[in-house]
Each structure stands twice: as structure tokens, then as C-alpha cells.
Design a protein around this nucleic acid. Structure first.
Lengths: 251, 251
DNA sequence: GTCGCGTTTGTAGGATCGTAACAACAGCAT
DNA sequence: ATGCTGTTGTTACGATCCTACAAACGCGAC
């Protein structure tokens, strides 16, 4: 069995099928249609198991059955299969979160807790970055050496906040980054102070309103890991530390 | 535990979480944030299990961790959770079907096989109906007593085929159905021949180009079940039988 | 010490995987 | 008709894996 195939079977399992179901469905798409024997011949699924597996695939709407002798099976088209799985997914998600939203408690005013949170994974850090940026009301400092860490959504959020009257400072020594924001109104571009070592591992720095801070590093298993804090004493202290060190050296 | 909650947990399981993962996530949304003990106190998840479950939830991007003593957990927002799950779903689906599309064999010209297929479930019958209708080139006969079996997509497909020059006949004794197509160009509306019993169980009849036929009945476990055939001798014979009986009685 | 935290290990149950046996039936030679 | 052969669809039964669940342990704080 090719490694591509095992990867595809894995993917189907993630979508909620069993490995037998995945194998039978793939085999039938290969054959366009066929009997239990046809399927068993080109997979390692025992023929006697094909019948029940096919039945459950029929329940999922992934194949159709011909009541004949021998029974023949016909998979639905790829588009139909994708659409069916997608709508099942959406339905389940609706069911799941409907309840969650019903029971979750109110944010009760302020999050005054002294919390520093950890976020692992590039995408998650992107999400949290946008989240923090979009809460800015007065001032944003956004720094990174790596242009690839500025997603379109982040760029848009920065521009949108700048347009809303927030003072936005983008800090980078990379021309690619600097040029990206050169044309955006309300965005000030700066170079990092010379003393900042900014070693290879550094990722991004986000400061918002003396209120929220996010700091990420690259490396480790997950590629990028960030810590952040919002509305906490930690956050304001960190921000002051980071900015104070600049000012002192700038004197 | 409320029945709503078990339903929500079921839904989360369908989305690929374990029941513990679902319970911990729900509990944390309830609490906004909390420790392993907080979670264990309001669920039946053993405290000792919360740590590993939370770790796997972190991997899925559904919560963030505060490395403190005690460890505190913070769930991501509902919107973020939904988006994360959705993008994971889309990614897996891409992986899965990429391979399927790569290996499936060509339709090799014609499907001359003598196949009658069975489709169970309202939605599946809808899909197959649209599929067959959209292959029409000359002539469509579409009959049903039940207006609710005419989805917007089916209605649109009929209108679209009519606009493409296909002769479309809609057959029904129900005014609701008849009025629905009264204004559509190229669609002829007819009453079924009086001798047709059309008992309570009948669902839809679709005839296309003397080539494809679909026949559904309502009742049984799945609500609606259809048989259909396309490009087979069966299909043309069935079509002729159905239509011939009309003409004979019409003489 | 006592208490709570976080970790580790072990067991029971359930679902899936994989093998095997079975009756029913069609084809074919005798 | 009889017997043989091969296939089909069904059912039963271990083996295996993962989750659910319980209990014990080391550790640090008080």
C-alpha cells in the first residue's frame, strides 16, 4: 500500500470513518462500482466484512446499493461525498456549540486576573495576534523581523485600527516589512533600537494600549510559541519594561 | 447531567473529540477559565485526567495554558473554536479526496451496465434527483403529489433545463405544485391520468430523455427511498412502461 | 506533618480489526 | 436427478486498540 494511500485513509479516519470504511470507499471510487468481491480483491478488507461496512457507508450517504445477486455498490461522486460530509460536519457543529453558547457565563465585567497565557502553533498565534490587535483603542506597537509572520488578515487589522485613529507603530529592520506598511495611512515605521539583539529565535512583539502584550519565539516542536497577557498587571509591567529599555538607551 | 448536555457531547464526539475532551471544553467555557480542580468539580471527569485531556485540547487549538501553579486553562472563543475545527475539517477533507481523485479510474465511455440503484434518505434522493435532471437534453417528466419534495435547487434545475430548450412536463394533481411552475417558461403542467392510483406512499417520478428514471416512495425507516437507473435497458423499459400505460388509457 | 497539585500506572469496557465457519444457491459433470 | 464445486451473504468469535475510570505516588506549600 502506498504511503499516499495510508495518508488518505488517515485523513478519512479524522473525518470520522473507520479504516475499513475509508478503504472500501476508495476502492469503489477506483472501480466506479463493484461487488463485495471486487472490493476485497483490491484491498485488505475481508470480503465478509465488506457487506456491513458498505451498509454503514450507505447510512452516511457515501454510496448506493444495488439489490441484486451479487449485491453491487456504487460510490457517490467526489463532489457529492464532500458536500455530504461537510453538511454533516456543519450540523454537528451547530448542535455542539448551540449548547456551549447557552451555558457559558457572562464575562462579568473585567478580566482582572493575573494571567499569562501560552499559545502553541503558528496559526493559533496568528489568531491571538489579530484578537489582541483588534481590541486596540489608542496605541499599537507591532514588531517582527520576519515578513512571513504578517498575514493578510494581520495587515488588514493593523490598517483598520490605524484608520480608526489608533497610533500604529511597526518596528522592523527588514526592508520587506517596512515597505509593506510604507503606504498605509496612520502607520509609523521605525527601526528597532540598535542594542536589541533580536536573535534568530525571536518572532513577534505586539503591544497594545499599555494593556495587552504578545511575545512569540520560533523553534521547538510547534514552530512558533507565544505568551500573551491582557488587562493584567503583568501586561503593563512587561510593556513598560520593553519600552523603558528602549528609551533609556535612546537617551 | 441535562439531556441537552449529553446531546452536545455527542455532537462534539462526532466532530472527533472524546467525551472527556468535550466535557472539559464545555466546562471551561462555562467558567471562562479555571484549573483542573475547577473543571473536575463541575464535571464527572477525574481531576487526574483533566491534565492530559487539556493537553490534547491545546494541540487541537481549543484552549490555551497558563504555566503556573496551579496550571490554569482558558478556552478559546466559540468563534475561534468553530473556525479552528472547520479549517481542520477542510484540511483533512482536502488530504482525503486529493488521493481519491488521483486514483479513480476514467468513466471509460459509457455506463452500459444494467444497474438499478437504491438511495435511502430524503437528502440523498434530492441529490440524485438534481443529478439526473441536470443531465437532461431533450425531455423531462417530473411528477409528485408532495410540494415539499420540490426543493429550491430542484425547482431551479427544472427551470434552467427548460431555459436550455428541454421540454419539461410537471405532473401533479396538487394546486400548490401546479402553481409553483405556472409562471416558468418552457414548463408544461399536466394532471396525472385519472386511473393512476397514486396511493399515499408514492413520492416522486422523474423521467429524463428515455434514458434515466427515478422513482421514490415514502415510508420505512429512512423516510424516503428511491430507485433509479441511467443509461440502462432497464431505464428505457421502465420509462416506456410508465408512459405507455398513460397513453393506452388516454385513447 | 497535612494538604493540594501534577504525574504515573493499572484495569475494565467497547469498538474495530481480522479469521473462520456456515447455509443457500448456481453451474456443471455425471 | 445426483453429486461436486465455487460463490455469495450471514453470523460468530478471538485479538487488538483506545477510551473511560480508578488508584497510588512524589512533590512542594503551608
Amino acid at each position: 500500500m502506498s504511503s499516499d494511500e495510508t495518508a488518505a485513509i488517515d485523513a478519512f479516519e479524522q473525518l470520522g470513518l473507520t479504516s475499513y470504511e475509508a478503504k472500501v470507499f476508495i476502492a469503489l471510487r477506483r472501480l466506479s462500482a463493484g461487488t463485495a468481491r471486487d472490493v476485497a480483491d483490491i484491498t485488505d478488507v475481508p470480503r465478509s466484512q465488506v457487506y456491513s461496512v458498505a451498509e454503514s457507508l450507505e447510512d452516511r450517504g457515501l454510496l448506493e446499493v444495488q439489490q441484486s445477486n451479487p449485491i453491487r455498490y456504487r460510490p457517490v461522486s467526489v463532489e457529492e461525498a464532500r458536500e455530504t460530509l461537510r453538511s454533516q460536519f456543519e450540523r454537528e457543529q451547530e448542535r455542539a456549540f448551540e449548547y456551549v453558547e447557552a451555558v457559558e457565563s457572562e464575562p462579568e465585567g473585567e478580566e482582572t486576573q493575573e494571567d499569562i497565557w501560552t499559545v502553541r502553533g503558528r496559526d493559533r498565534v496568528d489568531d491571538r495576534t489579530v484578537d489582541i490587535l483588534s481590541q486596540a483603542e489608542h496605541r499599537i506597537v507591532f514588531g517582527t523581523r520576519l515578513p512571513e509572520l504578517i498575514t493578510p488578515l494581520i495587515e488588514r487589522t493593523l490598517a483598520e485600527r490605524a484608520a480608526a485613529g489608533v497610533s500604529v507603530f511597526v518596528v522592523s529592520d527588514r526592508d520587506a516589512v517596512r515597505e509593506q506598511f510604507a503606504a498605509v495611512d496612520g502607520v509609523t515605521i521605525e527601526r528597532p533600537p540598535a542594542h536589541r539583539t533580536d536573535d534568530q529565535r525571536s518572532g513577534r512583539i505586539v503591544l497594545v494600549d499599555d494593556d495587552s502584550v504578545l511575545l512569540s519565539v520560533r523553534g521547538g516542536e510547534d514552530g512558533e510559541t507565544a505568551i500573551w497577557s491582557s488587562g493584567s498587571l503583568f501586561a503593563s509591567v512587561l510593556i513598560q519594561l520593553i519600552e523603558a529599555s528602549d528609551e533609556i538607551h535612546a537617551e
